[in-house]
């Protein structure tokens, strides 16, 4: 892999994760526990899909093969998607979605704050905007995690079950390719291991306030960087891409 391909794949990893997470969140529109939360979910989803869109646009430039943002989003199969495994899990109940969101938002805040310092101006620019957005997202998802974790007996149990279910995908958030280290060395990419502890600390604090316990024996699932996903992604893409693929090559 040359440097250009490495960078292209690196950008796709970020873009795919935000698109898939945004897509999952958008599924709440019209179905939330209260109107205010439907607006909030839609708003966060819009931010995430907007980030993905900017990143895909940059990826097409880096690739230089004349593909468009939509080609990248709508014409790749699940084995070619590099989103992290957390993002693709079905939305579950509202608490499941908020907890997953908190885990991802905490990652995004730290990741983007590091990427803002990238020597690549396009990436640092996208990161600066996304960083601000992810701070709002984290405030929102943390407060719901706390409220639902420390709410009623039922809500506590639901949240603990969700945490038990989700925790095994958290290692995969931090996965990096060996080739990415080259980008790290030239100051373009972020070494996720550099903020792993900070993430754990932050997440632990939220979970503690939420009276939730991090499972200690979760077997960590991996594979997203090789395009090995859980079975859920295939269905998500089948839905998302169906119309775009049904009438190929036209303007929408």
């Amino acid at each position: 892999m040359n440097k250009q391909e490495t960078l292209f794949n690196y950008i796709l990893r970020i873009a795919d994760s935000q698109l898939i997470l945004g897509h999952r969140l958008s599924e709440w529109t019209g179905h939330g526990p209260m109107l205010e939360e439907e607006l909030a979910s839609a708003n966060t989803a819009l931010d995430l899909i907007g980030q993905a869109n900017s990143l895909y646009a940059y990826a097409t430039q880096v690739e230089g093969k004349g593909r468009t943002e939509d080609d990248l989003a709508y014409l790749r199969s699940e084995r070619e998607f590099f989103n992290h495994l957390l993002s693709e899990q079905p939305r579950g109940d509202f608490g499941f979605s908020m907890l997953r969101q908190m885990l991802c938002d905490a990652f995004d805040v730290l990741f983007y704050s590091a990427l803002m310092k990238s020597s690549d101006n396009t990436l640092s620019g996208i990161a600066a905007k996304a960083y601000k957005e992810s701070q709002y997202h984290l405030r929102h998802s943390s407060s719901w995690t706390e409220r639902l974790g420390d709410g009623t007996e039922e809500s506590h149990q639901r949240m603990q079950n969700s945490l038990n279910e989700l925790w095994r995908f958290t290692d995969d958030l931090f996965a990096m390719r060996a080739a990415d280290l080259e980008l790290v060395n030239t100051g373009i990419a972020v070494d996720t291991s550099s903020f792993r502890e900070a993430w754990f600390k932050q997440v632990s604090e939220v979970l503690e306030r939420a009276t939730l316990t991090i499972p200690t024996h979760a077997f960590m699932q991996k594979g997203s960087l090789e395009g090995r996903h859980t079975e859920h992604l295939g269905y998500l893409l089948a839905e998302m891409q169906s119309l775009h693929r049904a009438i190929p090559g036209v303007k929408w």
Binding site: L19, S26, T29, E38, A42, I49, S242
Partner: peptide
């Protein structure tokens, strides 16, 4: 979830959000 392009997806999501 089936909007045929990223732009259309974002515009539709924003529109539905406006309605709320």
């Amino acid at each position: 979830t089936r909007a045929p392009s990223l732009r259309r997806k974002m515009v539709l999501l924003a529109k539905v959000q406006d309605e709320g």
